[in-house]
Nucleic acid binder design. Structure first.
Lengths: 288, 288
DNA sequence: ACCTGAACACCGTTCAAGT
DNA sequence: ACCTGAACACCGTTCAAGT
């Protein structure tokens, strides 16, 4: 019998988080290996209170841990990608049977959702020592949040794929959302336009980070630098007859972007886009 | 022996399109069932010229077709989603064995890439009777392109997932890219800022369409309307103790958006975002 | 409370064989 | 030229059982 409380009576599960799961100790330290919360449905079915106080029991055979599982999941996703991630592979890395993991997690999807939120801890509002709230200029804070978000997406290319599938509402992604809402409020935009502004800015970053992250990963698995891959790809396109006329138009833009590595060019494009967004918010605020 | 020309000598395959595949007759009509091109590598290995002229041979046992395969793939992806799509299921729908499909297609990934480009035919520059080029105002055309792109992403939620994984360069997505480049050129932005502007606009639409499409799909599989699902989800969040303070801040924005269904609200947000982007492009142009 | 092993119902893809 | 069937090496997950 697994811990899978009552999977049958769960017709509409939108997220691990909306089903009574505790925020995993609020910090990803190696605390109590407590598995999942009793689903908060019927307190009568509760077990004898597992390890009161939440202290780590040292006499455990495998030393398995929700936190250890999530951490290893993130590591595996980073190196091998989402497509090749499997419960069996993960279990192998953890030195246990595939089914051991299922004691701590209901499904693979739930585990991925946990990994997703874990990674949001790297974002500006959560990182220590960087009080971006300190800056009085909203545009400086907006830029900081955008750069932080982008960095996460690029570091973990699987994140964008997952965000689309689980509309994430874990504790850490929540913190980020709140920081975003505060910045947008400080722009002076009237409330009815704030949602649109949030979308324009962070959906852009999401899209940008998606392309960038997947490109980076592709280069890595091909064993090439980004510049090598880029020139190789351009070469391929140039040889294919159907693609004539495409580069003809694109070349103009590419040439105008001037000197620099692929990464430098992309950096500039990102800044330009942020300039446009900030200018647009300013213009729309003044107008309203 | 399958048609898989020389899969072993293909270490860096970025795309079906960059490997000599013909544009499938340029239009997805039921033309010659020709499978894949001979990979354009060594013309000596060519078969006796398959059905000269490209006319459809009526004596075929199953009537299988690259076009029929791609069309059915799109249909299946639309109804069941990317996660549950399988070659075996597809074959079943087509009334053939799983392996029959592999005569026309090298891998599942290649097939998905073909489906991806197929769907770009629904976009403005390809659709007939809508000469968006006619409008002299760049912002009107930009809005049209943005709306068209968004519509595709919402109609086919699997598209955003795939675009991230295969940086798509099929003939139809190429047509869309060209239309985008033309609009941005007409904004009067200096060339070195155009790439940033393209990103700001269409990465935003990509992100927006991703969330919207997946949300719609989620509602559909749950058998609820978008409004039902929305209020249900809000209710779940409100009950969870960790989420207090989240809605507190979000409520302000939600309330300010005023009356309307979820879809109407989203529509307004999208327009506001486009307003911001267009205003930003204008401001940046004037400034430069 | 935590972990295992065997089993089920799936995958994508290869290969040899049919017509 | 086109299609099949069996087989291989995988999946996620259930279930009954161990300690």
């Amino acid at each position: 019998m697994t811990r899978a409380a009552d999977r049958s009576k769960r017709p509409l599960r939108t997220s691990v988080w909306l089903d009574g799961r505790p925020p995993a100790g609020d910090a990803p330290r190696g605390d109590a290996p407590r598995g999942k919360a009793p689903e908060g449905r019927a307190p009568e079915g509760r077990a004898p209170a597992p390890t009161p106080g939440g202290a780590r029991r040292p006499d455990q055979p495998t030393g398995l841990d929700l936190h250890r599982i999530v951490t290893e999941t993130v590591a595996l996703l980073d190196t091998d990608g989402l497509a090749s991630f499997s419960m069996r592979k993960l279990a192998g890395r953890l030195g246990v049977t595939a089914m051991s993991v299922y004691w701590y997690v209901d499904t693979k999807d739930d585990l991925l959702e946990l990994a997703l939120d874990e990674v949001f801890a790297e974002l500006p509002p959560n990182t220590e020592g960087e009080p971006i709230e300190a800056s009085p200029d909203w545009w400086a804070r907006l830029r900081a949040l955008a750069h932080g978000y982008r960095a996460v997406l690029v570091r973990h290319p699987w994140v964008t794929t997952l965000i689309g599938n689980y509309l994430n509402v874990g504790p850490r992604s929540k913190a980020f959302s709140l920081a975003v809402q505060r910045v947008i409020r400080d722009t002076g935009l009237p409330p009815e336009r704030r949602m649109g502004a949030i979308g324009a800015t962070f959906q852009f970053v999401y899209g940008f980070g998606t392309i960038e992250g997947h490109f980076k990963q592709r280069c890595a698995t091909a064993g090439m630098t980004q510049d090598e891959y880029y020139t190789e790809a351009i070469g391929s396109i140039r040889q294919s007859p159907e693609m004539a006329g495409y580069l003809e138009s694109a070349d103009e833009i590419l040439a105008a972007r001037g000197e620099g590595t692929v990464e430098e060019l992309r950096e500039r494009d990102f800044e330009v886009a942020l300039d446009i967004l900030i200018a647009g918010i300013e213009a729309t605020t003044a107008r309203g």
